[in-house]
Each structure stands twice: as structure tokens, then as C-alpha cells.
Design a protein around this nucleic acid. Structure first.
Lengths: 338, 338
DNA sequence: CAACTTTTGGCAAACGCTTGCCGCCTTGAT
DNA sequence: ATCAAGGCGGCAAGCGTTTGCCAAAAGTTG
């Protein structure tokens, strides 16, 4: 038995055409341009295709049509829960639109990002760059030859969806001052991060307006493991509250502070950013600037798809700002009375 | 200005060939089969290719060679941190091997899984099925026509990497009994999950051997939001300890138990499974059966790639068992004295 | 019924690459 | 000098689609 273990070669458009007694071009049209062929013919072809279990080769299709029906999502670190939410959002939306998602981890490296963009130019119809590390010039260059949308990396050179960090920082500051805090420390993320710069700037401006005493520590890698160093540095500044670049770092700080016997929020209040998975069940639960991350991913896909669609070129948005809000949990409280 | 906004069309192998004064076939070989051409020729071609910024079209390459250099990873739920780790593991390993990862969320649906397998047969060189919901017959069918590796879904029909849950369950049981627990409840995951069945069976067998009183509740969706129902059900059984299908559910239970004023581990001990992101910083930190998930992803990729490599067909492993161990944290403690 | 306009389907040329086959040119051995 | 054996490069046939162009068929109009 088993004389023929040959993996049966998949049926091609030609097989369908033959069996249906038409030309391949007709099959092609019946399947992807239904109005172009007679209803009866189409139905016959569809039937045969179903019988044969025919699936068009995306490769061949791509070769001749120039479209791949895939878009690439470049994230700096697949490890980071923040990007998980983006991945989830884009994945959903892309699938709904019949696109395949190509996931690439660029390892926080601008070079790797640029490289991927180059290597995959033919592989993907478009790119979504999450928290891109690229320079404006690089983005411009990339955008000139392919469809691109950035997330959390504003640039006039490509459509962007940004999360309204400034708004959230203001809310956080208001929250903290109303709790009596006047010495607040910003715990910074990666130096090359656009959103980090943005957050810091807003923090600084708004704090000044409010006459607060501010300090800044960092940069820190946005990982829980950097939390210890971040916490120690923040404590040294004498601040009674911290606004932290992101939740990952904030959660790491929480752990360190507990180790050191510094009570949160008794001695120190902590505000994170992003409201990632885990922010609600860490100890104490983290007050954080919640971002609709997943939705940002979806919006990015929509913008990209719009860009790809020749019909409405130009009419598509260049910028989407996602609203944020402060989610108050247990990690913030009244300033220590002293 | 801007008279020519035409997105410059990417250089093809022909452009390179012309500029280097050779035939396209030579370029092709120089680039993908270096030993087949003279060193000088190759170097010249490489130089020209670099100048032109030439990137071979994976589409065309795939079409003519039959390989896509992409593999698809099918996960039941991109949302679940457990799969994040798998995604991360496969992504790393695949990139190292020069493959692209196609990520697909099958939404816990066997049908969707089968469908994807069919639709992508030409798109990917192979598939990694994480926690597949497919029946044995379906897996057999799929494996007969394409390269497949399953993760946490043993089947004699395809190479598999399983995480040694039984081992971990035994450890957990030992841990709990040594703490004096004798009434233990298993909190079940999805009915269609192979690992759930496996865990339950081991739990039952081992508990019987040890003369423990067991109970079982479920099935529950493995999400934190199901934790409340799970916790309530578990409490009703009168058990003093729970072994929970996975950490997600366990973390949800932790929250609910705190709400109800049931102390963990004072009144109830909880053991999770997987050691996902968050298990170490939830409240209390979760004792859990830690799995080398990311490594499982990497191993799966290796097995798949081996399967793809005609040279060593047959010599590749059919089964990899990833060791597990119990990580004891704060959610387990002595049985209440009553 | 003639003169047109639509519909509908086929032909064949791409798309950019790989690869089997062939033949020329070196090399080295005799 | 002669010849066999490689090394090396070119030719051309695909790979499975899409799509511009054309022609036959069918429908419309006056």
C-alpha cells in the first residue's frame, strides 16, 4: 500500500478551466471580477472550483497583478505587551479586509527597520510602523516608494495614528496635584522614542505652568527588569510621585519599591502609561494613562488600506489622534504629609 | 516641481544582469547558489546588485521555485499571553533561518483553522499549529499535503512539541499535599483543548493514587474575565486548593477571591499553569507550573524546518517534550486548619 | 433588417525568477 | 599536440496568475 505518497499537487487555474470548458482567463475573471462574465458561466466555474478545492496561488497572483494582499507590521519588540495590543488590532482589521499580516520584530533598531522596509518592499503592499525608530528623512524616503502608516511616531511624511499622550499627561498631572503632590518625577523611556520625547515635553511644559518641582530620570529600557534602577533613581530625586514612560517600567518599579519598603501610594505615587495587560492586577493596581491601543492598530490598518485604494487617494486622513484618559487605580494617593 | 511622482519601479534581476553584462540566470545563481559561478563574476554581480539596491521578488522566486520562505503560525487567540510567548519564540527562530512569519488568529475555531490551512497551502511552506482544535483526522489530512508541526496538541499524525503538563501537575500535587491540602479542585479550560484533557487526566489519576478528594469545575474560557465564575464554582466545592487550567484564569480567580474576602493562600491556595507574563506580579504572585513556552516555539520551528529540508527527511524528531517545573510564589500556602 | 452597441469569452503576453540542459573554454593529463 | 573533465555561463521553458486586446454573439434601435 501507499505506493503513491506524492503530495498531490494542488489544482491550478488551468485545471479548473479545463474541467469547466473555458479559458483560464475566464476562470480568473469569474473569480475576481464576477461582473465580467455571464452569471451561468460564473456559477459553473465556481462549482468546479469548489469541487476541485481550488485555491488561487497568491504568489502567482501577486506576480502578475503586483499586489500581494499582505501588509507588514513592524514592531520594535514583540515581547512588549503594548505591541501585543497593536498586533491584535491590526490582525483583526486586516483579516476582515482579506489581508495577511506579516509580523516583524525590528529589535528596537532603526537599521533593522530600514532594512526590513527595503527587503520586503515587494513582499508587502504596505507597512505599519509601530513606534518607529526611523529618522524623518528615512521615513520620507520609505514613504516615497511604498505605502506606510506610522503609529506613535508622528511625521509629516507619512500618515500617522498617534495616541494623545499630551492629553493624558495633563490629566495625570491634574490628578497628582489635586492629591497634593508638588514634586514629580518623569521616568523616561528609550531616548530614540518619539513618544517618550513627546511625553517629557508635555510634562515639562505643564509642570512649569503649574509651578511644580520636576525632575527626570532615565532613559530606561521599557521592561519590567529596568524597574529597579528606575525606582531607585526616582526615589533619589525626592519626588513623591512619578509619571512613568510606560506600564512595563512602572510595574517593575512597583516591585522594587515594595522590596525597599517604600509604600505605594503611601510614600510614592506611580502613574504608568498605556494600560497594558497586567496593569489592572499588579500590586497595587496601576493608575495609568489608558490608550486605546488595539483601536489604534485598527485605525492604522484603515488608513493604510485607504492609501492603497486608488479610488480615494488623497481623500484619506493623514492623521488620527486616539483619545486617552487617566484610569485611576491603587498606585496613586495623597502626597505624604511632611 | 514634482513632475515625476511615479514611485520608481524596483529593479529586477534583468536590470542587474544587463548592468553586469551577464544573463539573468547567472545573476540568479550568483545570488542564491554562489558556488555555481566564478568568484569574480559573482563579485561583480553582487556589486551591481548592491548599487541598484536589488531585492529579489519573493513572489517570483516562490512561483518558480515552489518555496515561499514563509511559515504560518496559527494560534487560537492572539490575545492570550501564552501565545505571545510562542509567537515570540517562533518569530526569533524563523527570522534567524531567513523565514517570514505569517501570523493567523483562528479564534478558537477548528473550522477557521482548517480553512486557513487550506487557503494558505500555497502561501506558506509549512504550518505551526499552536493548541490546535483540529481532530486527529483533520490533522492527518492536513499533514498529508503539507509540512506541519503542532504545539500542545499531540497527535501521531504530525510532529509535535508538547509541554510536559503531567510532570508539572504531579509537582503541583506534591507541593499542595505537603502543605496539608487534601481537597483539591481542578478548574478546567476549554472542552476542546487537548492540554486541558491531559491535565485533568493526570490530575485525576495522581490524586486517586494519593487518596485525595478531588472535584472539577468548568469548562471555562481561559480569560481573566472568566475567573469570577471559576472562583465561585471552585469555592462551592469546598476545596482548599485549586489547580487551574492556566494563569489567565487563575489571575481572574485571584481577583474574584479578593473581592469576596477569601484570602489567598490563607483560605484557598491557587496553582496556575504556564507562568505567563504577569504571573509574577499579580497579587499575590502566582504559584504556577512554568513552561518554557518560548522555547517550545523555537523547537517547533526547528522541527518544521527539518521537515522541510529534504536532506534529513525521516531523521527529524517526531516529538519534543518540554520540561516543566513548579514555580512557587505567594498564591499557595498551608491548608487552613479546620 | 441594417447598423450599432454591449456582453462575453479567448488569446497571448507579461510578471520576475529558477533551473534543466547545452556548449564553450580552461586545465591538466597523456 | 590531443583529449577528457570540469568549470562556467547562456538559453529558454516554465511557475500560476492577470489583463489588454480582439472577435464572436447577442441585444438594441430606428
Amino acid at each position: 500500500m501507499g505506493e503513491t505518497s506524492a503530495r498531490a499537487t494542488a489544482p491550478t487555474i488551468r485545471d479548473v478551466a479545463e474541467r469547466a470548458g473555458v479559458a483560464t482567463s475566464t476562470v480568473s475573471r469569474a473569480l475576481s471580477n464576477p461582473d465580467r462574465v455571464n452569471r451561468l458561466t460564473r456559477e459553473r466555474i465556481e462549482k468546479v472550483a469548489a469541487e476541485l478545492n481550488y485555491v488561487p496561488s497568491s504568489q502567482a497572483r501577486g506576480l502578475s497583478s503586483g499586489r500581494t494582499n499582505a501588509i507588514a507590521l513592524l514592531v520594535p519588540d514583540v515581547t512588549n505587551p503594548f505591541y501585543f495590543d497593536i498586533i491584535r488590532g491590526t490582525q483583526n482589521q486586516l483579516k476582515a479586509a482579506g489581508y495577511t499580516q506579516l509580523l516583524v520584530d525590528t529589535e528596537e533598531s532603526a537599521e533593522m527597520e530600514a532594512d526590513t522596509l527595503r527587503k520586503m518592499q515587494r513582499t508587502a503592499d504596505g507597512f505599519i510602523l509601530a513606534a518607529s525608530r526611523l529618522t524623518d528623512a528615512q521615513i520620507l524616503e520609505a514613504a516615497s516608494s511604498q505605502a506606510i502608516v506610522t503609529i506613535n511616531r508622528s511625521s509629516s511624511n507619512a500618515p500617522t495614528v498617534v495616541i494623545d499622550t499630551p492629553g493624558a499627561v495633563v490629566q495625570a498631572l491634574e490628578h497628582l496635584t489635586s492629591l497634593g503632590h508638588s514634586r514629580i518625577c518623569y521616568v523616561g523611556g528609550p531616548a530614540s522614542s518619539w513618544s517618550n520625547a513627546k511625553r517629557w515635553k508635555t510634562f515639562e511644559d505643564e509642570s512649569r505652568d503649574r509651578g511644580l518641582t520636576t525632575s527626570r530620570v532615565g532613559p530606561f529600557t521599557p521592561k519590567t527588569t529596568s524597574g529597579a534602577a528606575a525606582a531607585d533613581a526616582a526615589v533619589r530625586t525626592g519626588a513623591t510621585a512619578c509619571i512613568v514612560f510606560n506600564d512595563l517600567l512602572a510595574i517593575g518599579m512597583l516591585q522594587r519599591l515594595r522590596e525597599r519598603g517604600i509604600r505605594v501610594p503611601g510614600d510614592m505615587s506611580i502613574v504608568g502609561c498605556d494600560d497594558i495587560f497586567g496593569a489592572d492586577f499588579c500590586n497595587p493596581p496601576l493608575t495609568t494613562m489608558a490608550s486605546p491601543i488595539e483601536q489604534a492598530g485598527r485605525v492604522a490598518v484603515s488608513m493604510l488600506l485607504a492609501q492603497l485604494d486608488p479610488l480615494n487617494s488623497g481623500s484619506s486622513r493623514r492623521l488620527a489622534v486616539m483619545p486617552t484618559h487617566l484610569t485611576v487605580r491603587g498606585s496613586t494617593g495623597p502626597a505624604p504629609a511632611n
